[in-house]
Every structure is written in structure tokens, then in C-alpha cells.
Amino acid sequence: MIEIKDLHKSYRMGSNSLHVLKGINFSVEDGELVAIMGSSGSGKSTLLNILGMLDVADSGSYHLDGVPIKDLSETKAAQYRNKFLGFIFQSFNLINYKNAIENVALPLYYQRIGRKERQEKALKYLERVGLKQWATHLPSELSGGQKQRVAIARAMAAEPKVLLADEPTGALDSTTSYEVMDLIQKINDEGNTILVVTHEEDIAHMCKRIVHLKDGVIVEDKMVEQVRAAQYVQ
């Protein structure tokens, strides 16, 4: 599903150049649930941003579902993002003046799906994250966990190939974190490919595979026994 080879990325900070990714080789199969771990500054978020086409690599190759992701125009990148990827952010990134169902329907709008179908689909995904009765509430009326579940519904609504989650539990307390991880596991159980960036060990162990990043290189890549989040959720 994801195939990257010798990926490099550096940021220019004034006169200094900061080499963040120093040759990443990495692939993800269909249906995997991968945790990308590392301390801050290890390059894990940069990697996720490049995977998400939110940022571009300096060199190296990246194939997503067999499609080479290289030299994309902004317009093309936007179309690929819409078609291939679903994003879950640490700070949720919901549009604050849109209610839950409108937020979920947003990627469908950019897929040029009709209004009625958008509403139906959005409501279906809200139901799957258990927030059907909150459909008309604004983000400001929702708790942190609920906001993240709306964001997950939004990421899934476009039915992407890969879900990318950047510290999805970073802004949540542990109980809520486990609820969100439980949801992510269930989505993965249905066959969806998910990448989770985290620095929390317990969250990483709820995935099936852990990729450890340190100073811009992969230092460890192992399969783990998945800890089910459901056992922590009442």
C-alpha cells in the first residue's frame, strides 16, 4: 500500500539546514495498523506529513497504492489527498463554525458528491463513531473525545486507502485515549490501513507494528502483540 525508498528531508532554518529525515526505507501492507514512535524531533511528524502529501520530500521515492507521488501540483496533491488519505490530527482541526455532520461531510463535498448523499454518508459514519445524536452540535459543544471521534468519522467518510493519525490521543486524557484507540482498532479490524504517530508506549502497543524513529532514521521496526483497548473501556 505504501512504499517509500531512501526518503530525505531537510528544513532550512535561516542559514542553518536541519536534516530531519536521513534516508527512510519503509513499506506498509494493506490492512496494517502501524505505530510510528520517536521522541520529539525524531522526524516522525515530518514523515507522516510527507506520507500525507501535506509536505514534500527532498529526495527519494514514494508510491501510494502503486501511484508514484512525485512533483505533484497543488491541485493534483489536493485530489490525491482527497482520494487516498484520511487525516486525524492531535488538535482535531474541525471547522469551528460547522456542526458535526457538516464537518464529516466536508471531504465528500470536495469529491463532488451530491448534498443528499453527503448527508446520508456523513450520518452513517457519525453513527459508526457513536455520535449520531450529536450530528447537529458545533465542535465547541463537544468534549475532546467526541471531537476526535468526529474527526475520525470525517477521515473515514471519504473512504480513503490509508488513515493517517498524528498524535490522535495527544490532547486527550487516558480514558478518552483508550476509547479513541478502541475505535481505531475496530476500524482496522474492518481491513483499513492506519498509521498512527505517537510518543506514548501504551498507545503504540495497541497497534500491530511499531516503527521506531531516532534522529531521522528507522532504528527499529517490529511486529507486536496487539493490546486491545476495549479492556480499558467500560
Binding site: Q79, Y110, A158
Partner: peptide
Amino acid sequence: TKEIGIRKAMGATPRL
């Protein structure tokens, strides 16, 4: 700006 970022992540093209 942030809203625009969100919209772009969701697949909005610059033209839109």
C-alpha cells in the same frame, strides 16, 4: 488560514 489548511487536507484545490 487554519480553516484553509483543513480544507486543503480534506482535498480542496487552490482554485476552489
